[in-house]
Amino acid sequence: MDNIFLYSSLYLAFLMVLSLYRAIVGPSVLDRMIGVNAIGSKTTVMLILIGLLYQRVDMFVDICLAYAMLNFIAVLAASRYFHKRKGLSDEI
């Protein structure tokens, strides 16, 4: 079972690299935000997997909960921040 968890988390890291492409290249700022949000939701799963690998789920689950909330609040704050920016679509 440990091997399955190890390879699943490696695979998740690969998926995060795919999302990172959108976060770096994305034509507008909001595309980058989608990429960052996708990376965050994968990290939530990955933290629990890491906790199971290290036999310390009781500790990692708290970190995971805090990370999920932080990710949500970060997306909300960033989208509020970009509300009134005109010309968002022209940015490269």
């Binding site: 909001l30 989608i34 949000n37 909300l76 989208s79 970009f82 009134k84 005109k86 968002l88 679509s89």
Partner: peptide, 10 residues
């Protein structure tokens, strides 16, 4: 929230 920001940015 993201879609709202996109709509407001036009």
């Amino acid at each position: 929230a993201i879609v709202d920001a996109g709509v407001r940015a036009g």
